[in-house]
């Protein structure tokens, strides 16, 4: 574990706001990012040269019409896909230099994911789904249980720890997914259309929850979304059009 990360963990453990301690170097740096999908003889450009920096503690949205490259960019930053050209540097590590196992290790410790369709492991309970990340991280059982319970409490799911995903509503499942994304204390949470499958009330609650966690834990959030409520709540809004960043505006925290 790098000293910076250990320090961050300790600060979070002490419950201090991280904003004041935020480092100046960007957490994520994308340079000249190009991704072209080849379907038979046809080349489909998804990203056409993206330059993007995300600072520690950003609460940012990534919007744009369908096919603009939102999910592709999230996948590149999350190390789920590799660019055709350009570099993604996350927390000082160029993802292009990492093998499959190293990428998995990086995702495990530095990145949390929230997906549109929740993607919980169906044979595990809510608590076990959250604990799963900590098990992979090799956290000791007692601490693991404690942190998972706290994460579920943070997302308002006390009392539902033993339920399997099939016995939770969509909103509850997405809360479990958020707890799972945050429990490993990642540097960044990447959320792809996190509110798309939720009703209005659950969507608004989820947005407030993520904003509160960002403020309290200082975790960077980057959310691909069409949802105007999410965009309105973000401190930074990035617009993608045809695989390029067409606007990038930062708003004062509200």
């Amino acid at each position: 574990m790098c000293p910076e990360r250990a320090g961050t963990r300790n600060r979070i453990a002490r419950g201090q706001p991280e904003g004041a301690l935020r480092e100046r170097s960007p957490l994520v740096s994308c340079r000249g990012l190009i991704k072209t999908y080849v379907q038979g003889a046809i080349e489909v450009p998804a990203l056409r040269g993206v330059d993007l920096d995300l600072a520690r503690g950003d609460f940012a949205t990534l919007a744009g019409p369908s096919g603009s490259g939102k999910t592709t960019l999230l996948n590149m930053i999350g190390g789920l896909d590799r660019p055709s050209a350009g570099d993604v540097v996350l927390d000082g590590r160029n993802l292009a230099t990492l093998g499959k196992a190293e990428l998995a290790e990086l995702r495990l410790h530095r990145i949390g994911f929230v997906f549109q369709s929740y993607n919980l492991i169906p044979v595990l309970s809510a608590l076990e789904n959250v604990e799963f990340i900590l098990r992979l991280q090799g956290i000791a059982p007692r601490e693991r249980r404690q942190r998972a319970l706290e994460a579920l409490a943070d997302v308002g799911l006390e009392g539902l720890e033993g339920r399997r995903p099939a016995h939770l509503s969509g909103g509850q499942q997405q809360r479990v997914a958020v707890a799972r994304a945050l429990v490993g204390r990642p540097a960044i949470v990447l959320a792809d259309e996190p509110t798309a499958n939720l009703d209005t009330r659950n969507a608004e609650e989820l947005i407030e929850l993520m904003a509160a966690l960002n403020a309290r834990l200082g975790t960077t959030f980057l959310m691909g979304t069409h949802d105007a409520r999410v965009i309105a709540r973000a401190q930074r809004h990035i617009e993608l059009t045809d695989g390029r960043i067409s606007s990038d505006e930062t708003r004062p925290a509200g």
Binding site: E105, R107, F115, I133, R180
Partner: peptide, 16 residues
């Protein structure tokens, strides 16, 4: 398949 993808996305190594 989707679940194995999810597990890998969450940081589970292919070996696991």
């Amino acid at each position: 398949v989707r679940e194995f993808g999810l597990m890998q996305a969450l940081g589970m190594k292919p070996r696991a």
